[in-house]
Design a protein around this nucleic acid. Sequence first.
DNA 1: TTTGTATTTAACCGTTTGGTTATATACATT
DNA 2: AATGTATATAACCAAACGGTTAAATACAAA
Lengths: 124, 124
Amino acid sequence: MLAPDRLSSTFQALADPTRRAILARLSQGEASVTELAAPFSMSMPAISKHLKVLERASLISRGKEAQWRPCKLEAAPLEAASDWVEQYRAMWEARFDRLDAYLKEVQEKEVKPTTRKRNAKGKR
Amino acid sequence: MLAPDRLSSTFQALADPTRRAILARLSQGEASVTELAAPFSMSMPAISKHLKVLERASLISRGKEAQWRPCKLEAAPLEAASDWVEQYRAMWEARFDRLDAYLKEVQEKEVKPTTRKRNAKGKR
DNA sequence: TTTGTATTTAACCGTTTGGTTATATACATT
DNA sequence: AATGTATATAACCAAACGGTTAAATACAAA
C-alpha cells in the first residue's frame, strides 16, 4: 500500500481479479459495499480493504448516503495506464515492422539457407 | 509470484517502476542482464528477480548466447491488458455520454441550475 | 588449468498483501 | 432508548514482495 508512483498503484490495484470484478460491476453504475460484496465468497472486511486499495489508487470514489457508502468508478487513472501500455505496444509493433522489412530485404539478397536460428545481433 | 490468472500477473508485473523501465529499455531492442541492470543502483540478483517476474508474466523471453542471457520484449500480454483497460474506459465514457444526454434532457425540462462543471473527455 | 565474466540460486530479512474473526461506529427504525 | 443494518477498524496470520550478501554455476580466454 506504500504507493510509489501513480502508475504503479494503478497497475497494482488492477492486479487482482476481485478488484477488477468490482470495477467491472461499477462500470455499470454506482453500488453500495454490500452490493459489491454479494458475488464473492469473502468477508465484508476483505471487500472493504479491496475498496480502499481502489480508492487510494483513485480508481473509485465514495459517497455518503445514510449508512451507505456508494462507490463509483473514476476512470481517469485508467487513461494513464492505457497510455503507458499503448506506448510500448506501439514500439513493439514498430520493431516487428522493422523486422519484417529486414527479412524481406534479406530474402531478396540472399539464397535462402537451411533453417537458421536467428542470431541476436547488435551486442557489444 | 503466485500467478492466479494471466491478466493479474501481467498487471502485477507492470506495477513496479523498475520493471516498467526494463520493458522501456527492451522496447528499443534486446539487451543482456548487465546492460539492463546498469541504470539501476540495485544488486544483480535483484534485477534477476525482476526479470524472472517479467518472464513468468510472458512479457519477456530469454535467449542463450555464451554466458549471456539476452532478454527481449514479448508484448502479447500487453495486448490483453490494454484490451481490458480500454474496455472499461469505454464503458466509463459511455456512462458519461449517457450522463450528458440525461443532463441535456433535464436542461430542456427544467430551469438551468447553477453552472455545472464538464468533465475532461476530449483527450481522445 | 586457472582466471575472469555473466548470471543464477540460496538464505535471509523487513514490509506489504490478502485474508480472517471480533469489535466498533454510524445511521434508521421501532 | 433499543434494535437492526451498513460499514469500518483492530488485531492477527501466512504468504508474497523486493531487496540484501554470499556462494554456485556456466562459459570464454589465457
